[in-house]
């Protein structure tokens, strides 16, 4: 099969970008979308043209590095699948496929289809961790965790931080990502001591990065390759409200000495 690619080309964030059309060489329908880009790039390189820059790493749907908005949908046409596991059999011979980078102020463009997603790292640095060492895997049931909490925490922990939620949201909001990270630790016993400080710190950093707010449209959960749901955003909102009601910690006389 062959397709026509309409790809966003931009040298760097200081020069304006444009769409360029490429006719692909002969393709195998069982190629992944990224393998198709590899073939196109090889073809471009052999003709002395600049290859298309795109992000990729594990190519098995667990690292969160690949991105791309394919025909207006982050990670392509399927539900619960990242770009690297989107295959050409999902398209028809002769299709025109429009490929754009993730677009958000907080994700500045680096080149072509590559954007800088360090804003997510900075949100994680603000509170997406447990300060004390939690040790090596403990004996089973040494710390009791209700099965329901473990399941929910696992659902949230599936977030690979790819940023598709931001790319899909009409407000470029990062709430689904932050909610997943807040809930993942907030549902487990090890995460309790810093639960409310964590949600405040991460939301503060999220706002500072210039992401939008949530309008509950549900686009984020529709594109999330790990199918994280809007319920987690409600959980984050709940924790944020509880954090306000709890207030700042009591001042300790003598500085706690």
């Amino acid at each position: 099969m062959k397709v026509t690619l309409k790809v966003w080309r931009q040298k760097n964030r200081h020069t304006p970008g444009h769409f360029a059309s490429y006719q692909t060489p002969q393709l195998n329908p069982n190629m992944s979308f990224l393998e198709m880009l590899d073939v196109v790039n090889e073809d471009l390189a052999s003709r002395g043209e600049e290859p298309i820059a795109f992000d990729h790493d594990c190519r098995e749907g667990i690292c969160g590095t690949c991105s791309l908005v394919i025909n207006g949908k982050p990670h392509g046409p399927h539900r619960g699948v990242a770009t690297c596991q989107t295959y050409l059999r999902s398209f028809k011979d002769g299709d025109e496929i429009i490929v754009e980078p993730f677009r958000a102020r907080a994700f500045p463009l680096v080149k072509d289809l590559v954007v800088d997603r360090q804003a997510f790292d900075r949100i994680q640095h603000a509170g997406g961790f447990i300060t004390v060492r939690t040790g090596s895997p403990p004996d089973a049931n040494a710390i009791p965790v209700p099965k329901e909490s473990a399941d929910l925490a696992m659902d949230a922990a599936q977030c690979i931080g790819c940023g598709a939620c931001v790319a899909a949201c009409k407000n470029a909001s990062a709430m689904l990502f932050v909610a997943a990270k807040v809930s993942h630790l907030g549902l487990l016993p090890q995460g309790q001591p810093e639960r409310y400080r964590r949600v405040q710190a991460m939301v503060k950093q999220m706002d500072a990065e210039g992401f939008g707010a949530c309008t509950v449209t549900g686009s984020c959960e529709a594109v999330c390759p790990k199918e994280i749901t809007l319920d987690f955003i409600a959980r984050m909102n709940r924790d944020y409200g509880v954090a306000l009601l709890r207030g700042a910690p009591k001042k300790i006389a003598g500085g706690g000495a």
């Binding site: 949908k73 899909a168 009409k170 449209t217």
Partner: peptide
């Protein structure tokens, strides 16, 4: 205003999936 500022460059293909029309 903040939501509009969060995406300075619009998509060529408007992403309209998963969201109800009322919400838009």
């Amino acid at each position: 205003r903040e939501n509009r500022q969060a995406r300075p460059v619009a998509y060529a293909v408007p992403p309209v999936y998963g969201s109800s029309w009322q919400s838009r």
